[in-house]
């Protein structure tokens, strides 16, 4: 029997954003990454096109992480103190599509690393990898305003993704991105109207829609998914129904969020293998966000990425 499929007629699609510039485009990247473009809800290929598969990134910290549980630290061996080597391993051994460099060391409450030191790290990481780079600040508004412009400059022309621009802290980052040919992450705290406002502010400052990626602070399974899932789903619906100021691709952080959950790291025999638990927590978190509509996921553990790579393939089968 032929079933008449219940297809929704969407009026719009998610915008397409390209990260990274190869030599043809004036950069030095050896590959680029394309985000977004979907004209349907996630993974419903009976309904419409989703030309670009989910993008899987890995996070690298500019400061050696302290207190990482053994199952998380083990795959990295001795590179955790060396961002460039860490990044190279993620690409070469762990199959990351791109790297997200988090400059947590710039935080005045941590190392208070100087803008020049941060920029030096950015340069080393760029040299160590051919894939595109996300440059993510420390989260301290004022410090990010000092650090990001300098980092943006050393990476000029590479079409990096700079983050994060917030409602009350977007001008400097937007200006850097425009000056040096980068893209911007607009951030909001799980709030669609704030997200829209951030995107409007960025657009008004001249950042075009195909240079913005949305980050709606996420959370992990058991720790905020009940909110984040619906926020992402509603955002994707808004994009498909023609709200261009919510039509950009989305990025979700899952590594650092999942490993915050005590289910990921705490010794507790009733919860099963500690070896695998964190990986599973991270993979399940990534899956829910992909199903809700995120376009790029940022991992910590290489195994979680590997399972998600399988998932992305399986999701494209129907």
């Amino acid at each position: 029997m032929e079933l008449e499929l219940p297809i929704e007629q969407w009026s719009d699609s998610v915008s397409t954003v390209v990260l990274g510039a190869t030599s043809e485009d004036g950069g030095t990247r050896t590959s680029t990454v394309t985000l977004g473009g979907a004209a349907t809800l996630p993974f419903l290929d009976f309904e419409g096109e989703a030309p670009n598969p989910p993008v899987l990134a890995m996070e690298v910290l500019d400061t050696e992480p302290e207190g990482w549980p053994e199952p998380l630290a083990a795959p990295f061996g001795d590179v955790l103190g060396d961002p460039a080597a860490w990044a190279a391993r993620c690409v070469e051994e762990f199959d990351a599509d791109l790297i997200c460099l988090k400059l947590i060391g710039a935080d005045p409450l941590r190392r208070d690393a100087s803008p020049d030191e941060c920029a030096e790290t950015v340069r080393k990481v760029l040299d160590a990898i051919g894939v595109p780079l996300i440059i993510w600040g420390c989260g301290d508004y004022d410090k990010d305003n000092e650090v990001i412009p300098v980092c943006s400059q050393v990476a000029a022309g590479e079409r990096c993704l700079l983050g994060t621009a917030r409602e009350d802290n977007y001008r400097t980052i937007a200006a850097s991105a425009l000056a040096d040919g980068h893209l911007v992450i607009g951030e909001s705290p799980l709030d669609i109207s704030i997200q829209k406002q951030v995107n409007i502010l960025l657009t008004e400052q001249g950042v075009p829609g195909d240079r913005i990626v949305m980050y709606q602070v996420t959370g992990a399974v058991g720790y905020g998914v009940e909110y984040a899932y619906s926020i992402l789903e509603r955002t994707r619906l808004a994009a498909l129904t023609g709200d261009t100021m919510l039509g950009m691709p989305m990025v979700s952080i899952v590594g650092s969020e999942a490993w915050k959950a005590k289910e990921a790291w705490m010794e507790e025999p009733a919860w099963g293998s500690l070896e695998r638990r964190g990986i599973l927590w991270e993979a399940a978190t990534a899956e829910l966000f992909l199903l809700a509509g995120t376009d790029m996921v940022i991992f910590w553990h290489p195994e979680a990425l590997k399972h998600t790579r399988w998932l992305a393939k399986d999701l494209s089968k129907s």
Partner: peptide
């Protein structure tokens, strides 16, 4: 094994919680 069931029941609780 618990490590597989735990994320499943937690994800289920999240999905079925009224936001």
């Amino acid at each position: 094994d618990d490590e597989y069931l735990l994320p499943l029941v937690t994800a289920r609780m999240n999905i079925y919680t009224d936001p």
